[in-house]
Design a protein around this nucleic acid. Structure first.
Lengths: 227, 227
DNA sequence: GGCTTCAATATTGTTGACAATCTGTGTAAC
DNA sequence: GTTACACAGATTGTCAACAATATTGAAGCC
């Protein structure tokens, strides 16, 4: 039953709504549209080979995710996230990921604990080798695995939405010298607490980790545009 | 400049998109559409005197809020929130309101502290008088005031969204006998901690309060439909 | 020169119609 | 009696055209 059209082999004709939404989100997250940039429906129509109806539906969904802002009769633009907002968003992530870490500690299986430990080892190797990009990828995998172990759909969805709003800031963060040396032991503490099934320790470790991310964010203040 | 049309005096013609969304949300929250009930676009068109385009936009927004679910080619229905999901949602609220309470403790002014204390006194009076409805209203006002003091837009928006998903469950909760006697001292602890500018205590008190809500939720298990 | 006014243009808001898909019912074959 | 099928009705998905609104630039006035 070929109910869903294969995206790869889709003819040069129109795109489905979900495809357009995903493509536009990737373009925004990939930095092809900068914060504050206007998203004109006609242009998107041409770029994504979709009708205005489809484009508009995609814009509305992304507005719901906080990636863009829409004003009546004035169209959509990529949302600018101020430093203060970035801090707020990360504070929310801090408590949510803390909740998730605690729940992961309660539910982790031996196999999953081994997977966590393996990521921890690779992280240390990456830091030792100075492979920052690889460390950043592992960082994302670690947080994703913890969320998977926790199986907390509600928190997971919110965290994922918030993460999208911060791509630009997080990119700047990963450029900060000395971050890996600071965060590696924090990650290791998180892994250890989950392995030990110590929920309060896991929550505390995760919160401490993200609290230090917030501090680092604040040091970026000058790099932030005025508005 | 009468850019915005006055809702009250709006002619019997079409409704604006935002109005339709708000009206539909109120109808769902007010229980006029039950969980699982299908929301047929044509019916909504007639009820809200809006075009299908407008109705569809409203449905998409409410889907983003988690109030309804949309399936391709199968339309929208009011979301059923299982007990497990209600617990998850309340867990998220627990950590978010904890964050907000801590921040309120850091930022509260003397005037605001006095307002909090006044609500606390009225709560006690309402419990003593057995006025449960009034106590429930005060409960909502208390949480709202704390969030206003904190001024944490990101957490605030998420909490508000989650609250909408739980109206039905919270209604059942307020019917539980003995709840006010349990929650009143918890509320008083929260107020005292914020008044004392003790952020960690405020967070702990708020988390303890909502944790007991979660426990109460779990006792509702048999009242919950199978799916 | 700077400010207001006004028209031209660009862009978004909305509509009704048509196409695609799903759902339920009745019929026929086994 | 049960299953498979096909058809009809209901419902959603998409489109292109039209209406309403905001923006831009130039002309006129002080």
């Amino acid at each position: 039953m070929p109910a869903e059209q294969d995206e790869a082999t889709a003819p040069p004709g129109r795109r489905a709504a979900a495809d357009t939404r995903d493509a536009l989100r990737s373009a925004i997250l990939g930095g092809e549209y900068l914060p504050g940039e206007r998203l004109v429906e006609l242009q998107l129509t041409e770029r994504f080979r979709a009708s205005r109806f489809t484009v508009r539906a995609a814009l509305q969904e992304l507005a719901g995710e906080g990636l863009i802002e829409m004003q009546r009769n004035r169209g959509a633009m990529v949302r600018k996230v101020s430093l203060a907002e970035a801090v707020e968003i990360t504070e929310v992530r801090m408590v949510l990921e803390g909740l998730v870490a605690a729940r992961a500690a309660e539910r982790v299986t031996d196999d999953q604990a081994a997977d966590l430990a393996e990521i921890g080892r690779q992280m240390r190797a990456a830091v030792d080798a100075g492979e920052f990009r690889r460390y950043s990828d592992l960082n994302q995998r670690l947080h994703a695995l913890i969320r998977q172990i926790a199986g907390h759909g509600t928190a997971d969805g919110i965290i994922e939405t918030l993460r999208g709003q911060l791509v630009r800031h997080q990119f700047m963060l990963s450029m900060l010298p000395g971050r890996p040396q600071t965060s590696l032991p924090q990650h290791e503490r998180i892994i250890a607490a989950i392995r030990d099934r110590d929920a309060p320790a896991a929550e505390a470790a995760m919160r401490g980790h993200i609290a230090s991310v917030i501090e680092a964010l604040r040091t970026l203040s000058p790099a932030q545009p005025a508005y």
